[in-house]
Design a protein around this nucleic acid. Structure first.
Lengths: 336, 336
DNA sequence: TTGTAGGCGTTATCAT
DNA sequence: ATGATAACGCCTACAA
């Protein structure tokens, strides 16, 4: 079934059928009615390949997600999906593992699908620096700030990771903790890892709390296993501490498991705080103290920004959204 | 850049260029070398739209995932991705929310992308019954058994949910529990919900343990919140029990939170077991007893089956893969 | 082994 | 307001 068949069936020309199908002006009420009815009856659908071949680009929006099985990204995807569903644009989601280069992947996807725009969930500024020049469509990266990059077609929306970590560690200090250790990301590789590390250090420094990178920090992967290993390593190094801050909730969960495996109670013996504010955290025992990234809001804003750029030619923006400190059961005041 | 440009550049005709690009026979070594080099240089890529428009179908494989943020499915997707990456076929992943009709979505995707085959992660037999007839390409559903459906182009690979639940409840009984309550899925809507429920009942019945659906069962959504509500409801009904079986790990996690909110300890006061065997479970405190679905294996088999059907014209099969009972800390022997 | 040419389903330009 | 028709980039008989 093609528009040719539809034309034959209704007695109109293909051009008219095409006009109706695309809501173009300059079609009589009558033609519209007749043709639409034929469309209903036959369940006809335009051939996307032919359409895109002709138009040289799709009307779709792409989401490139870096890392499968990331709960924060899942929430983000859901938010984005419901947001985009209200528009006319089809949405495609593409998942890569954490190690892949999201920008190179996007370059490829652009050639293949010629989408209107791309939403990146996560991304490394190193990759963008190197290869984003090859991309000429509108993009926004969510979750990582890219304001230092200055591409005219690249926006970003994120929380201030550094500031958020500063606040998170502040709460630990405010509760009396002075021996604090950190489990975080690889600072050289991960922008997020670096920003969060620096935020933590700022707080520590501001409070005059000594910190020895060698002894008090472990760089691991953003996973349960990473958190477990990092904490275990710290524990077995013999370093003493009363609080552990993990740069992600999944790491915090792994760390708690490690503490328990060493016979320590959370938060009685050691306080633990995480980062991300996953829903999961509020179901754990004890509930996980964390820093909430507003997934709903970030998803919504990223779509709004992208659409503004696409539809109204708005300029790229770099938006910082507010985080929230979640003080819950896994952190207790320090007591002798 | 098109094959026409490539033809002009190399002095060959478009047909020859096309042949080289598609690995057709009947091209001279020389032509192949010259053209491939030009391709390398220019970074040329075929226009998928034109190709598919012409061929009337793509060479891609589609994964339709029912439910975002499902850790088991994430593991499955990863397994499938790495498996398919070794082949020539491009892979596309499409996510729907739990309520959408995956078959209707697939019908639409077939029209749009004309893929070679589809892998369904999750799916309701009701939807397949109603609309799978409209799909004429090869499919396999993973995680749900579809052997009762008898479509010649539909395979499935799954564990035996019923038997797995029977075994899981058996272990509870073997540990002395006689007052067991269940939090599961909506049996009318969800095949999985029903199969698991029935498996539990079989075990209970076999051991002569009384069970009152009204009082001992709560049907909820497959989520933390669902598990929380289900358990809370049971708790507040005043029903006495020593063990709770949840038809999914996420439900079990929610249930444990509810128990703790009521001042009960797991497993000291109440034992809890879940289902799915998520990695997360082994990091929780206490570690979650569960039934492991072999994500790696299911992913691998589903791809193997699909490729066998596509490439060798193999017949549809319905495969049952083994599950494993994970006995861990959240279940304790019953003691007076 | 290589080249020529028609057509896949659609949109858009130009007439009418 | 409607119709005829030329592309879009590719594949594939068919011809050479």
């Amino acid at each position: 079934m093609t528009i040719k068949d539809l034309a034959a069936k209704t007695g109109y020309a293909v051009a008219t059928v095409s006009r109706v199908l695309n809501n173009h002006p300059n079609v009589s009420e009558k033609a519209r009615t007749v043709i639409m009815q034929a469309v209903e009856e036959s369940g006809f659908q335009l051939n996307a390949n032919a359409k895109q071949l002709k138009q040289q680009h799709a009307t779709s929006i792409l989401v490139v997600v870096k890392g499968t099985g990331n709960e924060l990204f899942s929430e983000l995807v859901e938010s984005i999906q419901s947001q985009v569903a209200e528009t006319q644009y089809p949405l495609f989601v593409d998942y890569l593992d954490e190690e892949s280069n999201e920008v190179l992947r996007a370059v490829q996807l652009c050639r293949e699908k010629k989408p209107l725009g791309i939403l990146f969930l996560g991304g490394s500024s190193r990759n963008f620096q190197a290869d984003f020049g090859k991309i000429d469509i509108l993009c926004v990266v969510v979750t990582n700030d890219m304001s230092h990059l200055d591409f005219p077609n690249l926006s970003s929306v994120a929380i201030d990771d550094r500031e958020a970590c500063r606040c998170a560690v502040d709460t630990l200090v405010r509760k009396g903790h002075r021996k604090i250790v950190l489990v975080g990301g690889e600072r050289v590789i991960s922008d997020t890892g670096r920003a969060r590390y620096e935020g933590c250090l700022e707080s520590l420094r501001a409070h005059g709390i000594p910190f020895d990178e060698e002894k008090d920090y472990r760089a691991v992967r953003f996973s349960y296993e990473g958190g477990y290993r990092g904490a275990m390593d710290l524990l077995e190094s013999g370093r003493e501490f009363t609080a552990l801050f993990a740069a992600a909730d999944v790491m915090a969960i792994g760390a708690i498991r490690a503490l328990r495996d060493k016979g320590l109670q959370v938060p009685e013996d050691i306080s633990v705080a995480g980062f991300d504010g996953l829903h999961l955290g509020s179901y754990l025992v004890p509930k996980l103290s964390s820093v909430a990234q507003p997934a709903q809001k970030m998803g919504r804003r990223s779509v709004e920004i992208l659409l503004a750029c696409i539809e109204d030619g708005a300029a790229a923006v770099h938006e910082t959204v507010p985080f929230a400190i979640l003080e819950r059961g896994s952190v207790a005041p320090y007591r002798e």
